[in-house]
Each structure stands twice: as C-alpha cells, then as structure tokens.
Amino acid sequence: MTNNVLNDFLEPQLQALREQGLYNTIDTVEGPNGAKIKVNGAELINLSSNNYLGFSNDDRLKKKCIEATEQYGVGAGAVRTINGTMTIHNELEERLAEFKHTEAAIAFQSGFNCNMGQFPLS
C-alpha cells in the first residue's frame, strides 16, 4: 500500500470520527502535574491524574529522587525480567514485605505487569 492509498483509506474514517465527536486528541500538560494543571494556556482542575496523593510535586520526594538518580542513574537499563533488577528494587521489596508482615513482596513496573503477575495465562 502506498502512502496515498493508505491516506485515502484512513482520512474518511478519521473524518467520520471527528464528526461523531469520537476522535481523540491528547492534551499536553504545561508544567507539573498536580491538583491544578495548565492545558493550552488554561488553568484546569485535574480530575484524571494518578497523582491523587500529590507525591509528584512533594519536595522531600523530589530530593530523594535526585539522590537516587545520582547513585543509580536515570533508569534500570532494561526491564526487570532481563537484567533491570537493581539493589534498590530488592531493598524496596524487603521493606514492603516487612511492612506487610509477609515472607516476600514484589514491586511491578506498571499496572499492566501487576495484572499479568496476578492472573497467569493458561
């Protein structure tokens, strides 16, 4: 399929979605994500964030993140199942297990991975 063929195929369908109010555009948050955010220059109340505890802008956590970045770098370099498990992950899981009074705990990298770990595939 050439670009023109693909465009000719997609454009009417996209236009139909626009006309039906079903075409989705993703807004960009201008600045930190908090209870109030700025989108397209307008200040809005944020009702769609995972930051419901306000941790993303907490000065104590930002300081700890900077310290962790200086010690560990800006990422694990791979997913944990390859070679991305670092000592900081093990320490977190040990502390979580202690807090929960359980033998062990595991911290997943995303909600999707958490669900996949909870419900094994047959």
Rank of each mutant, 00 (worst) to 15 (best):
A76W: 02
F9W: 07
E91S: 09
N4D: 13
F9P: 00
G117P: 00
Q13V: 07
A107M: 13
N50P: 07
A42C: 07
V79Y: 06
G54R: 02
I26T: 14
Q109L: 10
K63C: 03
R60L: 10
L96Q: 05
Q109N: 09
H89F: 07
I45S: 11
T102H: 04
Q71T: 15
L22W: 01
C65K: 15
M86G: 06
E70K: 15
I26Y: 14
Q13H: 08
G54Q: 02
E30S: 05
C114H: 09
G117A: 03
T81M: 11
D8G: 07
Q71S: 13
G84N: 01
E67Y: 04
E70P: 00
K64S: 11
A104L: 04
L10M: 08
V79W: 10
D27G: 10
L44F: 00
G84K: 03
N113C: 13
M86D: 04
A35N: 12
T81Q: 06
N46P: 02
T28M: 14
M86F: 09
D59H: 12
F9G: 01
Q20D: 05
E11Y: 07
G77D: 03
L53N: 10
H101K: 15
K63T: 14
N33R: 10
N113H: 13
N90R: 12
P32Y: 06
T81C: 09
I66T: 12
G31T: 03
K62D: 04
L53V: 09
Q20N: 06
G111M: 08
F55I: 14
G111N: 12
E19K: 11
N50I: 11
V74L: 09
D27Q: 13
A68G: 06
